[in-house]
């Protein structure tokens, strides 16, 4: 039946070009493998850059000064480099924002997975996704020009720039992340566990609090840690709304300067290569990188160590 063969190729004369196919396969594999290696290069690039410039920085400023000074004035004539001034601001803002995001996000996750009907869920999930997709500069606008004036009516002594407004808005920003990750963990709890609790006569909230949440704990804690790490690295909200005033302490009502805000301040001023300011932003970046890396690693470890596996 030659009619079924394509064109004018005589039967038996067509052979797949296996050599060429194999060469193409090898070439594609090498190219795609190189692309995959870009991710390793990125990490190496980040680590190498930060370490190189930080070492340069530490030749000008001793590590002891960096860790123990109580003032942060690298742009003034009398320079002091107390990193804890910036760290204290970052920590204050992260803690408050997580205090907002944890209850909101966790309750929203419970609401979505346990209380909402499938139809309501289909509407609510994209709404939370929108909240997560709004650019941070927009949140910055909202914090500085909308939330701060509202807060001022309750707390008259609040400044134009303050950590409180930035933290509250930052908390709203990371809420969808906590909600989405916690919901994944809650949905993974098998139905049989819940049915068991109901069969023993538990009410819904007793089932959720004493069976579902403990079973999903590792995922919830992981989402919390990732939220903290996200809050620490967030830049635009804190730069716009929290100000640029390095203050040591944990008072949320005054203007403060976070690590990220300092990097932005120097970047806007166009620091020349090799100057101390240029090296300083990398030293601050290194501190930031170590903090987020530790938190991400801890969250990874926590999930591996404490995940409850259900068949």
């Amino acid at each position: 039946m030659t009619a079924e063969l394509p064109g004018d190729i005589a039967p038996g004369s067509w052979h797949p070009n296996r050599d060429r196919a194999r060469q193409v396969q090898t070439a594609v594999k090498v190219v795609c493998g190189t692309f995959a290696a870009v991710s390793i290069l990125t990490t190496l690039g980040i680590v190498a850059t930060l370490i190189f410039e930080t070492i340069e920085f530490l030749q000008a400023v001793s590590l002891w000064q960096f860790l123990t000074d109580t003032k942060w004035t690298p742009l003034f004539a009398s320079k002091q480099f107390g990193i804890f001034v910036l760290v204290s601001a970052t920590v204050t803002i992260s803690v408050i924002s997580v205090l907002v995001a944890l209850p909101l996000g966790l309750l929203a996750a419970i609401c979505l997975s346990e209380y909402a009907t499938p139809r309501v869920r289909r509407i609510l999930k994209p709404v939370l996704e929108i909240l997560a997709g709004i650019p941070t500069v927009v949140y910055g606008y909202f914090a500085l020009l909308t939330v701060t004036p509202v807060l001022k009516t309750f707390i008259p002594e609040l400044g134009r720039f303050n950590a409180l407004s930035a933290s509250l808005v930052l908390g709203i920003m990371i809420t969808p992340m906590v909600a989405s990750l916690s919901e994944d963990a809650i949905s993974a709890v098998p139905r049989s566990l819940k049915d068991g609790a109901y069969a023993l006569g538990s009410t819904k909230h007793e089932t959720i609090l004493s069976v579902v949440l403990p079973a999903a704990l590792s995922g919830i804690v992981a989402s919390l840690i990732l939220a903290v790490s996200r809050a620490i690295g967030e830049t635009m909200i804190v730069t716009l709304a929290a100000g640029a005033n390095p203050t040591l302490g944990f008072n949320p009502l005054v203007p403060v300067m976070t690590m990220t805000a300092f990097i932005v301040q120097v970047s806007l001023g166009d620091a020349a290569v090799g100057t101390l300011e240029y090296k300083t932003i990398f030293a601050v970046g290194m501190t930031l990188f170590i903090m987020t890396l530790t938190l991400n690693g801890f969250s990874f470890w926590f999930v591996c160590r404490f995940r409850e596996k259900y068949e």
Partner: peptide, 28 residues
């Protein structure tokens, strides 16, 4: 596996750190 762990790690690096990498690698 190293690449996989590395990718999930990169997703958690603050965006401003990428800015510092870009400053050192691409701009300079």
């Amino acid at each position: 596996r190293l690449i996989e762990i590395n990718i999930s790690n990169l997703a958690g690096v603050p965006s401003i750190i990428y800015g510092l990498l870009g400053l050192a690698a691409f701009v300079r």
